[in-house]
Simulated scan of single mutants.
Amino acid sequence: MTACAERPVLEDQPENDQLTRPLAYGYMRVPCDIPDDKVRRMEHELRRCAERQGWYLVTIFSELDCGRHEAFDELTLELQRADAHYVIVPTFRHLARNAVLQNVLLARLEFEAGAEVLELVETS
């Protein structure tokens, strides 16, 4: 089971207020060898996290090629265009495997788009 990290969960949010909820976007890497059902589960967990935070998940940007950042670049531009400030990732490793590069990409989202990034965490 997974849960959102680092932010208090909002309760009592109306379900049909998509126009007034803050916008959020998902981001994940999807290697070609990952089973489709695992991808769907991750997407579902990103949506659940957004709902629990009281956000409207607009879309999920998926990086299909290892070592590439086209979807990340598109995400950054979309955050700026939409004036959105929330990104949800399954883990920070979806940004990059290397911790230094993870921090660079997190800083880029923060400084270029004013975005906060939430990571799903495993719960027992």
Rank of each mutant, 00 (worst) to 15 (best):
Ala115Gly: 04
Glu63Gly: 11
Ala24Phe: 02
Glu110Ser: 15
Ala82Leu: 12
Glu112His: 08
Ala96Pro: 11
Ala71Pro: 11
Phe92Cys: 10
Leu109Phe: 02
Val117Phe: 02
Pro90Phe: 01
Pro31Tyr: 03
Tyr56Leu: 05
Arg29Cys: 14
Glu78Ala: 15
Tyr86Trp: 01
Cys32Val: 09
Val30Pro: 11
Leu79Glu: 00
Ala96Cys: 08
Leu79Asp: 02
Tyr27Asp: 09
Met28Val: 01
Glu78Leu: 09
Val100Ser: 07
Leu118Ser: 05
Asp37Lys: 15
Ala24Val: 10
Leu79Trp: 03
Gly54Arg: 04
Arg81Phe: 10
Gly26Met: 11
Val117Cys: 08
Pro90Ser: 12
Tyr56Phe: 15
Gln18Ser: 13
Asn103Gly: 15
Ala82Lys: 13
Pro35Ile: 00
Gly26Glu: 07
Leu64Ser: 12
Asp36His: 05
Leu57Ser: 08
Gly114Val: 07
Glu116Val: 08
Gln102Ser: 13
Gln80Ser: 10
Ala82Ser: 05
Leu64Trp: 11
Ala115Asp: 03
Val58His: 10
Leu77Glu: 08
Glu45Asp: 06
Asn103Pro: 00
Glu112Lys: 15
Thr20Arg: 13
Leu77Gly: 07
Asp33Pro: 13
Leu79Tyr: 05
Arg93Cys: 03
Gln53Trp: 00
Leu77Trp: 08
Glu110Ile: 07
Leu79Phe: 09
Val104Glu: 09
Glu110Asn: 12
Gln18Arg: 13
Asp33Lys: 14
Tyr25Trp: 06
Ile60Met: 12
Glu70Met: 11
Val89Tyr: 03
Arg29Val: 12
Leu19Met: 06
Glu70Phe: 11
Ile60Asp: 01
Ala84Ser: 07
Arg48Val: 06
Glu78His: 11
Leu23Val: 12
Ala71Tyr: 09
Arg47Ile: 06
Gln80Lys: 15
Leu23Lys: 15
Cys66Tyr: 02
Glu45Met: 09
Glu112Ala: 15
Pro22Ala: 02
Ala82Gln: 14
Arg68Leu: 14
Ala113Gly: 02
Arg40Met: 09
Val39Cys: 15
Arg21Gly: 07
Glu43Ser: 14
Asn98Lys: 08
Val100Asn: 13
Asp83Cys: 12
Lys38Tyr: 00
Cys49Lys: 02
Ala115Gln: 04
Ala84Leu: 06
Phe72Lys: 14
Leu64Gln: 10
Asp37Arg: 13
Leu109Glu: 00
Arg48Pro: 02
Glu63Thr: 07
Arg47Tyr: 01
Glu74Ser: 13
Arg52Gln: 05
Arg93Gly: 08
Gly114Ala: 07
Tyr25Glu: 07
Ala96Trp: 00
Cys49Thr: 00
Arg29Thr: 11
Val117Met: 04
Leu109Met: 12
Gly114Asp: 00
Ala50Gln: 01
Glu63Lys: 14
Trp55Gln: 05
Trp55Met: 13
Val30Asn: 11
Leu77Asn: 14
Phe61Ser: 06
Ala99Ile: 07
Leu79Gly: 01
Arg108Pro: 04
Asp33Arg: 15
Arg48Phe: 04
Val89Gly: 09
Glu43Cys: 13
Leu75Met: 08
Ile88Val: 14
Leu105Val: 10
Leu118Phe: 04
